[in-house]
Design a protein around this nucleic acid. Structure first.
Length: 485
RNA sequence: GGUCUCAUGGCCGAGCGGUUAGGCACCGGUCUGCAAAACCGUCUACAGCAGUUCGAAUCUGCUUGAGACCUCCA
């Protein structure tokens, strides 16, 4: 099958056909989390979205090298007039060493990836594991004249860079405009120009992590790690660079500047930005405090929601919105997703039991093709899902004898649905974790109840049903027997 | 303040100049001892005001409202 995947490129503002530099091989770099706390649901949305991208590219037949970094070096920032690094701060608060913090939250992050059925990237390199590579790139930038060192720190010389390159090419920012709007920043004295950014920062006495460099002991700047690791694993130029929308400026802009400044070329052909997860119309964020953790929602301990939602439901909920749109997470939204997902899964089960005919009465080929078409158009999962529901409708109609399908077409449809639901959307096949010790008990109880029903002993049968309902077990009398859940 | 995005039926959410996306809810029906569930069907919306066009949710301008970035952030 011919796969023409169109991707919206933030750099050009247009959808472009993916043309990998190296035939079937796609190199994709995605900015990962800074592990100073447990990732929240908003963080997860970005990673789930890129998991979808990864999954679809694999499905489309590409050999994808998917690199997602782990930021385990706390970058010094100026917040509230104080210099601090996020990981060091967390370490002090929790009375642990920096690497303990990173290790602890990395374990959690790995758990979450499994919980949400994310495929592991090809490699998850860490910032601290690539200090040498970062230093080497900084040296190149200095050699090329796009940086300068002051008092043991190194800064990127934006003004000099702008003579040769376009700073703001990604974010559309004009430095002149930025300048007028500069807020009061601390520590400006070392920088020659307000838009310069740190490549290397001299160590403070209280820093928990310190590395040696040609400029003295210190810490790498925030942006340089991604340049170093993307270059190391994917080369100076690769196909796709992704990340959250909030990283577009300055992080990604500065990555471009660093690549151009060191190697003279842009790192990625296509830049992808996943949009934010909102709570009440506002971006979920650590600083606003409106976030909740992935585990809270799965365990039902989040104060925002009355009941727990399965990871599958959350994933499906997110897949129903396009990755470039903001998505508001709400209780009604999750409830709707839960029911919708159930409908989809029921349809998938029914397809196995449905009977075939001598001919197919509907446009089955068009339907099957529509799955790929949706995803080829900038990974439009909402349309894919709409088309899958269309398929479910047909399955139900076949089951009701209102439409027909041949054995061959049925097989193709079934396979396609399974592939897109499980492999591409990354939903799970079965809700796991039912206590199977309960099964024989339920068989016994429901057997007794059906005996009562056969004798039209409604008092007994309803008593059993009500009793089970009180215990949280819902009994449903279907055409083909009674089910419970 | 600057830059940029977005405003879709009761709710969520696609749409990128001309075919009622889809899900949830509602309502009607099928099924059923009752109930629940399930299934089928119905529900023709595009913030406001101008303009371009044979034709606009979709393009342009203005107005109003919301958000993002400019500071760490997925």
């Amino acid at each position: 099958m011919e796969h023409k995947v169109k991707i919206y490129n933030s750099l050009s503002g247009k959808k472009e056909i993916l043309t990998p530099r190296n035939e079937q091989f796609v190199g994709m770099y995605v900015c990962g989390p800074t592990l100073y706390s447990e990732p929240h649901m908003g963080n997860m949305r970005t990673f789930i979205n890129f998991d979808l991208v990864y999954r679809y590219l694999l499905h489309a037949g590409y050999k994808v090298k998917y690199v997602r970094n782990i930021t385990d070096a706390g970058h010094i920032t100026n917040s509230a007039g104080q210099e601090e690094d996020s990981i060091g701060k967390a370490a002090r608060l929790e009375q642990l060493q920096s690497l303990e913090i990173v290790y602890k939250y990395n374990v959690k992050f790995q758990e979450l990836q499994r919980l949400y059925n994310m495929l592991p990237p090809s490699i998850e390199p860490t910032a601290t594991g690539h200090i040498q590579e970062q230093i080497e790139i900084i040296e190149k930038i200095l050699e090329n004249g796009y940086g300068y060192s002051v008092n043991g720190s190194v800064y990127f010389d934006t003004k000099r860079y702008m003579q040769d390159f376009n700073y703001g090419i990604l974010s559309g920012r004009k430095v002149e405009e930025l300048e007028n709007e500069t807020r009061t920043l601390n520590n400006q004295d070392e920088k020659r120009f307000f838009a310069d950014f740190a490549l290397w920062k001299k160590a403070n006495p209280e820093d928990m992590q310190i590395w040696r460099s040609p400029w003295g002991d210190g810490n790498p700047g925030w942006h340089i790690e991604c340049t170093a690791m993307s270059t190391k694993y994917l080369g100076k130029q690769f196909d796709i660079h992704g990340g959250g929308m909030d990283l577009k400026f300055p992080h990604h802009e500065d990555e471009i500047a660093q690549s151009c400044g060191s190697f003279g070329c842009q790192p990625a052909s296509i830049w992808m930005h996943a949009n934010m997860l909102n709570v009440n119309g506002q971006k979920m964020s650590k600083s606003l405090g409106n976030f909740f953790l992935p585990k809270e929602i799965v365990e039902g301990t989040s104060p925002l929601f009355k009941k727990p939602y399965a990871p599958n439901v959350i994933r499906f909920f997110m897949m129903q919105a396009h990755y470039r749109s903001t998505l508001d997470i709400t209780e009604t939204g999750l409830d709707a997703a839960e029911k919708g997902l159930n409908r989809l899964m029921e349809g998938l089960k029914l397809i196995e039991k449905v009977s075939h005919s001598a001919s197919t009465s509907f446009k089955w080929k068009e339907l099957v093709d529509s799955f790929d078409e949706a995803m080829q158009d900038d990974f439009n999962a909402p349309i894919l899902i709409a088309n899958l529901f269309e398929a479910v409708r047909y399955i139900n109609l076949i089951n009701d004898g209102k439409e027909t399908i041949t054995l061959e077409h049925l097989g193709i449809l079934q396979t396609a649905m399974q592939v897109f639901i499980f492999q591409v959307l990354g939903l799970f096949s079965e809700e796991q974790g039912q206590d199977n010790r309960l099964n024989p008990v339920m068989d016994l109880v429901l057997n007794l109840r059906s005996q009562a029903r056969e004798q039209k002993d409604w008092t007994t049968s309803d008593k059993i049903r009500d009793g089970l309902a009180a215990a949280g077990i819902v009994v449903k009398d279907g055409k083909e027997g009674t089910t419970w859940s």
